[in-house]
Each structure stands twice: as structure tokens, then as C-alpha cells.
Simulated scan of single mutants.
Amino acid sequence: MTQVLVLGGTGWLSGRIARRWRDAGADVTCLARGARPAPEGTTPLAGDRDDPHVFDDLRDRKWDEVVDISSRADHAAAAVDALGDRAEHWTYVSSMSVYSDDVTDRLDESGARHAPAQPGDEYDYAAQKVAAEDAVITLAERAFIVRPGLIVGAGDPSDRFGYWATAFARAGVEPVLVPELAGRSAQVIDVDDLAAFLTAGLRHGIVNAIGDVHPLVELLSGIRAAAGHTGELLEASDEWLEAHGVQYWMGERSLPLWLPADMPGFMRRDNSAYRAAGGSFRPLETTIRAVLDDERARGLERERRAGLRRDDELALIDRLTSS
């Protein structure tokens, strides 16, 4: 029986990976802090990766596959150091944030990366992922590094893609505030497509895992149609939004998927290696419908990690239309 160790296995993506390996007949162990349950049918093992002895109970086993999605380089390096010689294959889920070039159109896996994080550096997500990749690359032909872009789907804890389903659903016949749309693109991958790719076989090398490029206006139009929104789309310029304290991309008081104009390549990466390796995409409409159903189930007025509250959005709309 295939022996799989998922470092995590209780989160949004890692839980799906653990379940898919389980469903494929593997013996799956999930090493996690224990705050959330591991998927049924897997073996949970409680452990804090800040603990230098966290891997002690795993060193005496051989692993056909180890999967790590950590965004801390010290955690990734410690896992490789402890278990690298016990693993036949190692999958690391990195990020396309590792690329330092956000301008080039259709950048592939050869693109230059940011400098890796060094011990003692202030936390920086991209630099941490680069340093984690460097640790995994030492496993040479046993390593597989996947660089997803924006991962979307039901249950997304970042609330980025889901914000737009909420924004259109709650507005109804009223207006929705959007950034300037001309010339902007969006590129996403459904979490279940990514999980399927990560568990379909033991691949090697480095792959950008991201969907096809869509004009942002078309993506938002698809979400809007699914939500039944019939109100007006009110576009605000980058300068106006920045002046009124609205953030790019993510976080509190943001407009998700909106990026600075000097980052045209960030959502236009090359995905040909993913396709060549057997990666597939469900219809975007299927993802949109699943996200919309999930947002309605979780509550359109709930607290969110990204986007605008409706009262704040309406206040901004009032300022925009009265200026």
C-alpha cells in the first residue's frame, strides 16, 4: 500500500489532498497541530512544527510520498532534513509569488525568483516560499515543486474570489463598485483541480499550476450573471480607490483581483507545463456556481478577510457618484 505523509492535511487544500490520496487507496498520515480534525480514514498525528522533535515518530518509516504546503522556510527545511532520506518522492506546493518579474506576459517556470528568505529576516511570503523551494530542490529528481497562482473554490479562507460572488449577490438591483476593468486579466485555478493534479501521479520538476487567462471584465460578468445582479457596475480609477483607502488584491477594505497597473504579468502566467503534465480545468462556470452557493450558505453579510463591507461600499459609491 502506498504510504503518504501530508504535512498538514486538515486545511482547505491539504485536506483535499489527504482525502484524494485516501480515496486512491493510500495509507495517509496527516501531521498537524490538531486544532482541526484530519479527514476520516486517515491517520492523524498531532505535532507542532516549531517543535524540533516533531518528526521523531516518523523517521523510522519509509514514505512513498510526502506533501508539504508550508509557507515557512524553516518548517520546509526541517522536514527535508528529517525525512528527506525516508521519502521516495516529495511534493512541495509553492506559489507563483516566487517570481520577481510581474511584468512579462506568459512567464514560464524559468522566470527569475525573489531572493530567498534568510534566518532572522522579517516574514515575507514570497521570500519564504523561495527559500522553502531551495530546501526541497536538494532532493533533486525526487522533488516536485508546484507553483499555483490564485486558488479558488468553495470554502476559500482567503475570501478573495468569493468576495465578488457576495458583492453581486447582495447588491441585487443596486450598483457594485469595481476597479477599472479595461486591459486587466484574471487567472485562477479551482482547488479541486489542483488537488486532483497533485495526487494523480508522482511527477518531477517545477510546474506553474494556474488556469487560463481571462479578461477581468469577462470573469466578473460571469459571476454577476450567476448571482443574478442587474444593477450598475461603477468603475473607479486606481488613483481614486487608493486615495479613498481601498487596497489592492486582498485584505481588509480591498477589491480582490485588482492589481496595480505595473503588474500586468502577475495574472498572465504560462500554464503550458501544467497542461502537458496532465493538469485539467473544470468549466469556470462550475467553479463560480460552487463559490456562489458556498457564499450564500456561509452568509453574505459575514465578516470577511478580503473585500468591502456593503455599508462601506455604498459610502464609497456615494462619494464616487457625487464627485
Results as ranks from 00 to 15, higher is better:
residue 1 M to S: 14
residue 2 T to V: 14
residue 5 L to A: 09
residue 5 L to C: 08
residue 5 L to M: 10
residue 14 S to M: 00
residue 15 G to C: 11
residue 22 R to G: 10
residue 22 R to A: 11
residue 23 D to T: 02
residue 23 D to V: 01
residue 24 A to V: 08
residue 24 A to Y: 05
residue 25 G to V: 06
residue 25 G to R: 11
residue 26 A to S: 14
residue 27 D to K: 12
residue 32 A to H: 15
residue 34 G to Y: 06
residue 37 P to I: 04
residue 38 A to V: 13
residue 41 G to H: 09
residue 43 T to V: 15
residue 43 T to C: 14
residue 54 V to M: 09
residue 61 R to Q: 14
residue 61 R to W: 05
residue 64 D to G: 13
residue 65 E to N: 06
residue 67 V to N: 09
residue 68 D to L: 08
residue 68 D to M: 07
residue 71 S to W: 09
residue 72 R to N: 08
residue 73 A to W: 12
residue 73 A to V: 06
residue 74 D to I: 09
residue 74 D to K: 13
residue 79 A to H: 06
residue 87 A to S: 14
residue 88 E to Q: 15
residue 91 T to C: 11
residue 96 M to E: 11
residue 98 V to F: 10
residue 100 S to P: 01
residue 101 D to A: 05
residue 101 D to G: 08
residue 104 T to W: 00
residue 105 D to C: 04
residue 108 D to H: 11
residue 116 P to Q: 05
residue 116 P to N: 08
residue 116 P to D: 03
residue 117 A to Q: 09
residue 121 D to F: 12
residue 123 Y to E: 12
residue 125 Y to F: 12
residue 126 A to N: 09
residue 129 K to V: 10
residue 129 K to N: 08
residue 130 V to I: 04
residue 130 V to P: 02
residue 132 A to D: 08
residue 133 E to A: 08
residue 138 T to K: 13
residue 142 R to D: 07
residue 144 F to G: 03
residue 146 V to F: 07
residue 151 I to H: 00
residue 153 G to C: 04
residue 153 G to I: 00
residue 153 G to M: 06
residue 156 D to V: 03
residue 157 P to I: 07
residue 160 R to K: 15
residue 167 A to L: 01
residue 168 F to S: 02
residue 169 A to K: 10
residue 177 L to P: 02
residue 178 V to Y: 00
residue 179 P to T: 01
residue 179 P to E: 02
residue 179 P to F: 00
residue 179 P to N: 03
residue 180 E to Q: 13
residue 180 E to R: 12
residue 184 R to C: 00
residue 184 R to G: 01
residue 185 S to H: 13
residue 185 S to P: 00
residue 187 Q to P: 01
residue 188 V to R: 02
residue 190 D to C: 02
residue 192 D to M: 04
residue 193 D to W: 08
residue 194 L to D: 01
residue 200 A to I: 04
residue 201 G to E: 09
residue 203 R to K: 14
residue 204 H to Y: 06
residue 205 G to L: 11
residue 208 N to M: 09
residue 214 H to V: 07
residue 217 V to E: 14
residue 217 V to W: 04
residue 219 L to H: 07
residue 224 R to Q: 11
residue 225 A to S: 15
residue 227 A to E: 02
residue 227 A to S: 10
residue 228 G to A: 08
residue 228 G to P: 14
residue 229 H to K: 08
residue 230 T to L: 11
residue 233 L to Q: 10
residue 236 A to D: 00
residue 237 S to M: 00
residue 239 E to N: 03
residue 239 E to I: 05
residue 242 E to C: 06
residue 243 A to I: 02
residue 243 A to C: 03
residue 249 W to M: 09
residue 254 S to P: 05
residue 262 D to N: 13
residue 264 P to G: 10
residue 267 M to L: 15
residue 270 D to W: 03
residue 275 R to Q: 10
residue 278 G to I: 05
residue 281 F to P: 05
residue 281 F to D: 13
residue 282 R to D: 02
residue 284 L to F: 04
residue 285 E to A: 15
residue 286 T to L: 08
residue 286 T to A: 15
residue 287 T to F: 00
residue 290 A to V: 00
residue 293 D to E: 14
residue 300 L to G: 11
residue 302 R to W: 14
residue 308 L to K: 05
residue 309 R to G: 15
residue 312 D to H: 13
residue 313 E to H: 06
residue 316 L to M: 05
residue 316 L to R: 07
residue 318 D to F: 02
residue 323 S to P: 01
